[in-house]
Structure formats: structure tokens, C-alpha cells
């Protein structure tokens, strides 16, 4: 029982970081209908931005955090402008977007290898290693902070999408970009905002991943998990991405705890295949159609 609770806590913590990344996939998918595989590269650079902010610039933790997330927000919008906007202007088929996204992802990874180098780097220790004891549970300080910061950011994002004028325009664009433009919405700006939001959260996730594990050019591969989580929850749905991520995080830690950590990555892909076979729209995928 105790071990179960402990695994649940760990799962929630890692799941919440998956969620930060998964909403980036979901936001872009919801308005552009393709999976932005360059997102992993953005997360990876977020980890580097945070790392250099702390080590080279000797910034305080919060400042490094902001540097990383603003940096990735800018990077994500840049990728949109360079890799996707020319395709959007030509109304290219979605396959081209995916190819362009993969290209951007490979480019980012290799630019980092060429300039920063392929070595693994470890974040300086920010939080004390010894966990907080809560009854018989031991909760890592970093895990706790990861959970609360992620939950806070996700809550802000959902409020933004649900309550603000631009948030409504994003939802409307997700349903139909042309009709949204007919309302006078600058849909080009909506796309940029969506990439900036996804990029911002990717930066935060990148820093957390760097702190929890290490920083290296292929760290973006971990984000495959968050993509799986987004598919699991239903691509294009924000609550779906969050639920899918938390579930995936919990399932993974339970598998690692009770079976073997060898199976941890396996289970993620088993879930992906299972979801695609049984319910391709995921838990909360969009299905509503307008009547002709």
C-alpha cells in the first residue's frame, strides 16, 4: 500500500511534466492538424537555455526558468515562421508539414551537437537531495516543485484558452480557421500565439527534465512520451493531453515499480498501439461535426 502511494506520487510528478509538453503537441494539432515533431527540439533547447542560464550567466533559479521559457517561446514562433508559414501560405498538404517538422527537429539537434557538443551535462544542484517525509512517504523536493509549477502553468493555460478573447479565437480556429478569419480574427497571429504558448511551456518542461535527468542533444527523444500521452488523451484536446499525460506517468511508474524499469518505455508504446487500435480519437479526441 505504501509503495503504491509512493509510486502514485512519483507518477503524478512525472506525468505533470509530460502534460506541459503534451499540451504543446495538442495545441498545434488542434489548429493545424499535424503533429509538430520539432517540439522535442524546442524542449531540448529549453533544457540548455536553463542550464546555461544557471551556469554561464549565474542567474538565480527563477530567472533561468524565465530565460528558458521565453527563449523557447521565441524559438517555437521562429520555427513556425520558417518551417510552416511558407507551407501554410501555399495551402500545402499536411504531410509536407510533418516532413518540415522532422527536418526542423533534426536541424535543431545537429546544430546543438555541432555548437554545444554531444556531451551529457548535469544541472547544478538547486534543491536539496533529501526528500520531504510525509508520514511514511518520501517526496523529492524537485518532484514536488515539478508538480506544482506544472499544475499552475496548465491551470493558467486552460483559463487563458477558456476565458480570454484570444483564447476563444484559438478555440474557434481549432474548429475552422476560415470561419474564424471571417470574424475578423487575424488567424496568422493566432497561429503564432499557439506556437508561443506551446514553446513557453516546453521551456519549463525542458528545464525540469534537465534537472531530473541530464542535458544532452537527444533529450528531445523523451518527448516522444509526451506525444504518446497527447494521442492517448486525444490529440487536439487540452484536458485530454493533461489526463493522458498524468495517466501515462502513473502507469509508467507503476510498471517500473512493480514489474521492472525495463518495461517502462515498452508500456508507453503498447498504450500508443492499443489506443490507435481501440480508440484512435483517444480519451477526449474531437469528434463533433457540423451538420451539412
Amino acid at each position: 500500500m505504501n509503495q503504491l502511494l509512493q509510486q502514485l506520487v512519483n507518477g503524478l510528478s512525472i506525468g505533470s511534466v509530460y502534460a506541459l509538453m503534451a499540451v504543446g503537441y495538442s495545441l498545434v494539432y488542434s489548429i493545424m492538424n499535424f503533429s509538430n515533431f520539432a517540439h522535442g527540439g524546442v524542449i531540448m533547447l529549453g533544457a540548455y537555455f536553463g542550464f546555461f542560464g544557471l551556469t554561464l550567466l549565474k542567474l538565480p533559479f527563477a530567472a533561468a526558468f524565465i530565460l528558458a521559457s521565453v527563449g523557447t517561446a521565441v524559438l517555437a514562433t521562429l520555427i513556425e515562421r520558417v518551417a510552416y508559414k511558407p507551407l501554410r501560405d501555399r495551402k500545402a498538404p499536411f504531410l509536407y508539414f510533418i516532413i518540415s517538422a522532422m527536418g526542423a527537429s533534426i536541424l535543431l539537434e545537429n546544430v546543438v551537437i555541432a555548437t554545444i557538443g554531444p556531451t551529457f551535462r548535469t544541472y547544478p544542484e538547486i534543491f536539496a537531495r533529501e526528500p520531504i517525509a510525509l508520514g511514511s512517504l518520501a517526496i523529492g523536493r524537485l518532484d514536488l516543485i515539478m508538480f506544482f509549477v506544472s499544475a499552475f502553468c496548465l491551470a493558467c493555460l486552460i483559463l487563458f484558452i477558456d476565458k480570454t478573447r484570444i483564447g476563444k479565437a484559438i478555440q474557434a480556429s481549432a474548429y475552422n480557421m476560415k470561419a474564424c478569419a471571417l470574424m475578423g480574427v487575424n488567424t496568422d497571429l493566432v497561429v503564432l500565439i499557439v506556437f508561443a504558448l506551446g514553446g513557453f511551456l516546453a521551456g519549463i518542461a525542458g528545464v525540469f527534465f534537465g534537472m531530473k535527468y541530464t542535458v544532452y542533444p537527444q533529450i528531445g527523444n523523451i518527448t516522444t512520451k509526451s506525444f504518446i500521452a497527447a494521442v492517448f488523451g486525444g490529440l487536439g484536446s487540452l484536458p485530454g493531453a493533461v489526463i493522458g499525460s498524468v495517466l501515462l506517468g502513473v502507469i509508467e511508474t507503476l510498471v517500473a515499480g512493480y514489474l521492472s524499469s525495463q518495461f517502462r518505455d515498452l508500456i508507453a508504446f503498447v498504450i500508443l498501439i492499443g489506443v490507435l487500435i481501440v480508440r484512435p480519437t483517444g480519451i477526449m479526441g474531437k469528434t463533433a461535426e457540423d451538420k451539412a
Binding site: 478555440q171 475552422n176 470561419a179 457540423d290
Partner: peptide
């Protein structure tokens, strides 16, 4: 412009 096929935002 009232578009062909209405294109109402079904999710809103």
C-alpha cells in the same frame, strides 16, 4: 461573409 456550409464553431 456567411460562408457556404455555415461553418459555425460547433465546439463553442
Amino acid at each position: 461573409h456567411v460562408p457556404e456550409g455555415r461553418l459555425v464553431f460547433a465546439n463553442l
